[in-house]
Design a protein around this nucleic acid. Structure first.
Length: 927
RNA sequence: GCGGGUGUGGCGGAAUUGGUAGACGCGCUAGACUUAGGAUCUAGUGCCGCAAGGCGUGGGGGUUCGAGUCCCUUCUCCCGCACCA
């Protein structure tokens, strides 16, 4: 029998399916291990070879852990809500549920062919009512809780009401958008509606009027992580700022815990750094500036309160609430013009113009609380409403943006920090401001001569004493806007009564997504759900028309996998206590600021409520690298249908054209396939070199338009899934980006065939010997067992593959067919190539699945080397090697080296200056 | 601008604590078998050189008996964040 992967693979896949080989349950007799892949959004294009890279890696690890005695939870599901299906629905009228279902079926077929060890009984789909019931449930819980800053955790709204009733809100330190202070008596006097409006500002899921990223092309608002470079991540459409009433999640309340949690988890430093930047903690002070002739004050956040004396003007964001109030009559028109201009610009335009200085004077003056100086107040769009308080004190001497602004508007510049040894010059002669993180204060009243660090603490203490400010920590992390004006998402379990939102009772969940006649907004601009009939409660109260965003369904899916069919809870206590958290999470780096922040937040919230036992959901996380495409090109001579081979292209004027990589082998074009590829090439002619058409190549993103997409199905058909799995791992380190080049796959395929021939002779007859293995054979296999174990544990799968190749090459050279050796080899190979391993395991006479075997221990005794091939260097250059006993002493080594004729040649009659002998390592002779 | 990463043959990539640079594979060259080869097997393959030998891990400098690995400096490309006060 030869290696017939096309028969072996479906056979074992059927076996696994029928025997539920990968089904797992809570089993307290075994330690648990949870390996999770970021579940895919099932797109219409299907999987390409880049997608399974992480899945294969996690599958190898899962199988390895299982062989090592763990009860491994390794589930898969689908992130099934999303814009592409809905956009397609708008174009075709086809219900997104239908296209989604179709795409899922296709994904499943492709995944099944690769031979993953998923427990498919645990599959989840975010768009299914029995799943999104728990997404809605979590939302209702967030509605029912507020965040207590003192205890740093979520607590019930009831407990908050109790405090309000007892002592008002002056003693409460909660994450809230409510500002005014009220007493218990006042609280009591508020109407029910007033009370509810106040409470809404405390809830973790809350409704509020905020500036949002509005994408008119998609007809919806977007969260910050869904906008990149001023355009929508999905589709690349322009985004503008707009004030809208929206549901938000108070993620910012968890900023500090999200930051602190990073120190407790095993993620890469770069990913942690991305999250730290996104959370954006900065320490500084909040300082109140009064406004000349007004009772209002402007609150400013600054990280450099030490430079207060250097403030020469103030800038507030054009959207700042005080703009209208403080603008003087003679400046009104100019200010309004400016605000209109700012509003009309897209985010992208604004970002492209960051170097242009624009702004307008309001006519008002702020008062520097330290020295009473009057500071003209400007509005400018370099100050963002979304950060801090939307107002700054400008210190042009030490901030480049303030400096530019000061120059543009001819405002004074006062230096307040000097660097060591610096000569003081007139700031009006400066070319630019300078950063002043270190230095001594000047022109700074009470903090003169202090170091910057000391000045900061001194001034904070001072302003706190004087009562015009306090030390403050600010975060860049914003609350997550949670409404989408779209159809294909989870409905909110919310209805409106007298204009106030009320939450559906748990017993009414899930609130199922209704049917609509079209997937477009209504004529009067309501979201698509505005088209649904009877979209109201039994009592006739209207339901919320927005749906939840993409990240809603993915925020707790890892918990649902633990107990996917539970109708009474997201996850049972028992299941959660057993599976606890994800031990290994593998997925793409693109989720660094979205999913991985939101799900951590979501998990911490559920942790506060006692529904889950772990504060952090993902213990270890690995980002697999991107598989890039390797494109091929042909060169058409201009205005002809003649194509010239790569090496000759410079002799003609040519156009470089992408050609389908699937009709190119080792950069040689299949001419007939090319002619039938596209109608326009039927009559193509070629200028060849060496009788062949050579193509050019380049590494690019894998995409349809570059014709470099490789489908795993095609690879599996030609080489089998085991070859695909091996080759994906062989390409390079898991975390690196690397190009896919199908050419190299022959190597690993040959390896599998060579492996097969260790078990079967040329006539396909099994030729296993039960004789005792020789020491040499044992050495080969035990060396490999050790290497594979070490490699898997450090996720170095590419080097495992070469170790297997070396092992098979060596066993082939030894003509080894000993059962004991081959059994061990089969087991350690099975995480990588499960199908062939099952087949060989069976051929070895085993009657159970290789997945139930035990990963072998290596025996040190076989690994001991008796001799060492010593490299002999002269002046640090290796000249020859010498086989010596591994336990030879320094003296013995030296004697042997100097007895060697080559040594005499390199000494060339000279006395060695120095002889370095490192036993077991190397000999170096300095001449 | 800030932060992170990367750089090794024609290509993907290997190299414990500093200790034989280029493992393994692709490709390429030659040969064997074959009606045939995008099959299989054998040998070779970093660069220059007939050879002896020399040169080689982005560039320059340093530490060391010895540097891909450590230190300084510089460049390239990639990624993330970005008027964040």
């Amino acid at each position: 029998m030869e290696y017939k992967f096309s028969e072996i693979e479906p056979k074992w896949q059927a076996y696994w399916r029928e025997n539920k080989t990968y089904k797992v349950d809570v089993d307290n007799s075994k330690p648990k291990f949870y390996v999770l892949d970021m579940f895919p959004y099932p797109s219409g294009a299907g999987l390409h070879v880049g997608h399974p890279l992480g899945y294969i890696a996690s599958d190898i690890y899962s199988r390895y852990k299982r062989l090592s005695g763990f009860n491994v939870l390794h589930p898969m599901g689908y992130d099934a809500y999303g814009l592409p299906a809905e956009q397609y629905a708008i174009q075709t009228g086809q219900h997104p549920a239908i296209t989604t279902e179709k795409n899922i079926t296709r994904y499943r077929e492709q995944l099944d062919k690769i031979g993953f060890s998923y427990d498919w009984d645990r599959e989840v789909r975010t768009c299914e009512p029995n799943y999104y019931k728990w997404t809605q449930w979590a939302f209702t819980q967030m509605f029912k809780h507020y965040f207590n800053n003192k205890t740093q955790k979520a607590e019930s709204i009831e407990s908050l009401i109790a405090i309000f009733e007892k002592s008002g809100n002056s003693n409460i330190d909660a994450a809230t958008s409510h500002e005014s202070i009220f007493t218990a008596l006042e609280w009591d006097s508020f109407s029910e509606k007033e009370k509810q409006e106040i409470l809404l500002n405390y809830r973790i899921a809350f409704l509020s009027e905020t500036n949002v990223n509005w994408c008119s092309e998609l007809g919806t608002v977007l969260a910050n992580d869904e906008v990149k470079d001023g355009v929508s991540v999905r589709g690349g459409y322009p985004v503008t700022q707009k004030k809208m009433k929206q549901w938000s999640l108070r993620v910012s309340a968890y900023a500090q815990r999200l930051l602190d949690g990073l120190d407790t988890i095993d993620w890469t430093d770069s990913l942690k750094e991305v999250q730290r930047n996104w959370i954006g903690r900065s320490e500084g002070a909040s300082v109140n500036f009064s406004i000349k002739g007004h009772s209002d004050i402007i609150e400013v956040f600054t990280t450099r309160p030490d430079t207060l004396y250097g403030a020469t003007f103030m800038v507030i964001a054009p959207e700042h609430e005080l703009v209208e109030k403080i603008t003087t009559a003679d400046n009104k028109i100019k200010i309004e013009e400016y605000i209109t201009w700012v509003k009309g610009r897209t985010e992208r335009e604004r970002m492209a113009d960051v170097n242009k200085v624009t702004g307008r004077f309001t006519g008002a003056y702020g008062i520097n609380p330290l020295n009473g100086n009057e500071l003209p107040i400007y509005i400018a769009d370099y100050v963002l409403m979304g950060y801090g308080t939307g107002a700054i004190m400008a210190v042009p001497a030490h901030d480049s943006r303030d400096f530019k602004f000061a120059r543009e508007f001819k405002l004074p510049i006062i230096q307040v920090v000097t660097r060591a040894g610096e000569e003081i010059t007139d700031p009006s002669t400066w070319e630019e401001s300078f950063d002043s993180k270190e230095g001594k204060m000047i022109n700074s009243g009470i903090i003169n001569n202090l170091d910057v660090k000391e000045a900061i603490t001194t001034i904070i203490k001072y302003i706190e004493e004087k009562g015009f400010g306090y030390g403050k920590i600010n975060y860049r992390l914003r609350d997550a806007i949670f409404s989408r004006q779209r159809y294909w998402g989870e409905p909110f379990p919310v209805y409106f009564k007298n204009g106030l939102p009320e939450i559906l009772d748990d017993s009414k969940l899930p609130l199922e997504l209704p049917e609509v006649d079209k997937y477009l907004p209504t004529e009067d601009g309501q979201p698509p759900l505005g088209r649904a009939k009877n979209w109201e409660t039994a009592d006739g109260y209207p339901f919320e028309l927005s749906t939840m965003p993409g990240f809603a369904g993915s925020s707790a899916y890892y918990l649902r996998y633990m107990d996917p069919n539970n109708n009474d809870a997201l996850v049972s206590k028992e299941a959660n206590n057993y599976w606890q958290d994800v031990d290994l999470y593998i997925g793409g780096t693109e989720h660094a600021t979205g999913h991985l922040i939101y799900s951590r937040f979501w998990n911490k919230f559920l942790f506060d409520l006692g529904y889950v036992c772990k504060d952090e959901p993902f213990k270890k996380l690995i980002n697999q690298g991107m598989i890039q495409g390797r494109s091929n090109f042909v060169y058409r001579i201009k205005n002809t249908n003649t194509f010239v081979s790569y090496g000759l292209r410079n002799e003609y004027e040519t156009t470089e054209i992408h050609v389908d990589v699937n009709i190119v082998h080792n950069d040689i074009l299949d001419l007939n396939a090319f002619k039938s590829w596209l109608p326009e090439y039927v009559n193509a002619e070629f200028i060849l070199e060496d009788g062949k058409y050579k193509c050019g190549h380049a590494v690019e993103k894998m995409s349809k338009s570059m014709y470099n997409v490789v489908n795993p199905d095609v690879i599996i058909e030609q080489y089998g899934a085991d070859t695909l799995r091996f080759y994906e791992m062989f390409l390079g380190p898991l975390e690196d980006s690397k190009p896919w080049d199908t050419s190299g796959i022959e190597g690993v395929h040959r390896f599998l065939k060579k492996l097969w021939r260790l078990y079967f002779d040329n006539n396909g007859e099994l030729m296993i010997s039960t004789e005792k293995p020789t020491d040499a054979e044992q050495k080969v296999i035990h060396k490999t067992i050790k290497k594979i174990k070490e490699d898997i544990e450090k996720f170095s799968f590419n080097t495992s593959v070469s170790a297997f190749m070396i092992c098979v090459n060596e066993l082939t050279d030894l003509k080894c067919n000993k059962k004991e050796v081959l059994e061990n080899l089969t087991i350690i190979l099975s995480p990588f190539a499960p199908h062939i391993s099952e087949e060989l395991w069976c051929a070895l006479g085993q009657t159970t699945s290789v997945t139930d075997a035990v990963f072998p221990e290596y025996n040190e005794a076989y690994l001991i080397e008796n001799t060492k091939k010593y490299p002999i260097q002269f002046n640090g250059k290796m000249r020859f090697t010498l086989d010596l006993s591994a336990n030879a002493t320094k003296e013995e080594i030296q004697e042997a080296v100097f007895a060697h004729e080559t040594t005499q040649k390199w000494l060339d009659g000279n006395e060695p200056k120095k002889i370095i002998i490192v036993p077991g390592k190397i000999v170096n002779i300095v001449v």
